[in-house]
């Protein structure tokens, strides 16, 4: 059984590793020292700095930062945008992964490239393209003005820019997973008489649920924190189009450091929760993977 074999990843210790397969002690300690110093300076210190700066004037001042209409509005707007993006991108991710992994068709690799694109495009450009499309000077600008519709400097623009940045996350997570699972279970369900929908809900969805959740976690983390793209399309209108990251920027530029870092600490805590949930899902996925791998070994 796979679980009982000591692997490097689980429970294997340095002591169990024979000397010829590891480095001299001083090398090990130096490498660990370098790695820890690097992580301390570039990861941990910035994180600590956020909370330190937020609490610089005491806990009362920290809490007072949230008794601000603009801050509350920014929080609500950020959550609204995140939820919309999450729902749309999850639906898109499942559809895209389904069509890419379950069928063979012409143009598949082109679709895959399009899905990868946002990872390589600057967030600022992601904002710019929607300004060129829907802004006052944009392609549809006049038409929108005539019909009294606002996309840029309004919620739809923020949602579109955030969608562009975050849509690959769910699809990218599901595609390799569904590829590995193949189509046998779906075929089995179809032979047993299940309809297409029943097959999806009762066979496919339960077996991809952790991957889907994982992609959604990554998607929501990025959606909540997106700055560059949103900055271009939002217009920074306080109480209207300011998301939390933009609100942090405004406070910072107005030298309201405690309030700025207080809002930043809120997003940092959300980031830490994200990492925690991400770990949990990784652990669940690895367990399921090992169960399946282990059982195949026993055949």
């Amino acid at each position: 059984m796979a679980g009982s074999v000591p692997t490097i990843r689980h429970g294997g210790t340095d002591e169990r590793c024979p000397a010829h397969l590891t480095e001299p002690t001083w090398v090990r300690w130096s490498l660990m020292g370098i790695a820890f110093s690097f992580l301390l300076i570039f990861l941990l210190l910035p994180l600590i700095a956020v909370f330190f700066e937020a609490l610089r004037k005491g806990f009362g001042a920290y809490l007072a930062s949230f008794h601000d209409r603009a801050a509350l509005h920014a929080i609500v707007l950020t959550l609204t945008v995140t939820v919309i993006c999450l729902v749309l991108n999850a639906a898109f991710g499942v559809c895209a992964a389904w069509v890419i992994t379950k069928f063979r068709f012409f143009g598949k690799s082109f679709l895959l490239t399009l899905i990868d694109l946002p990872f390589a495009v600057s967030p600022v450009i992601a904002g710019l393209i929607f300004v060129l499309l829907f802004g006052a000077q944009g392609l549809f600008g006049e038409w929108l003005l005539d019909h009294d519709l606002r996309i840029i400097f309004a919620l739809p623009g923020i949602v579109l820019a955030t969608l562009f940045i975050t849509f690959p996350f769910v699809a990218r997570e599901l595609i390799p997973m569904m590829q590995a699972q193949g189509t046998e279970e779906e075929e089995a369900a179809r032979v047993l008489g299940a309809s297409g929908w029943v097959t999806f809900w009762r066979v496919t969805l339960p077996s991809i649920k952790w991957g889907l959740l994982y992609g959604m976690i990554l998607c929501s983390a990025r959606a909540m924190g997106e700055f560059g793209a949103v900055s271009v399309v939002s217009g920074h209108i306080r109480n209207q189009t300011n998301t939390l990251p933009l609100h942090i920027e405004i406070l910072y530029n107005e030298y309201q450091f405690v309030a700025s870092f207080a809002c930043a600490s809120l997003l940092s805590m959300l980031a830490l929760v994200t990492l925690l949930i991400k770990r949990f899902i990784e652990w669940r996925m690895r367990n399921e993977h090992q169960q399946n791998a282990g059982s195949v070994e026993r055949t």
Binding site: E184, E185, E187, A188, A189, V191, V203, P206, S207, E288, N292
Partner: peptide
């Protein structure tokens, strides 16, 4: 028809 798959295709969940 009843079909038995090569790798069984049991629903793992």
């Amino acid at each position: 028809v009843g079909f038995v798959f090569q790798h069984y295709a049991l629903f793992r969940h």
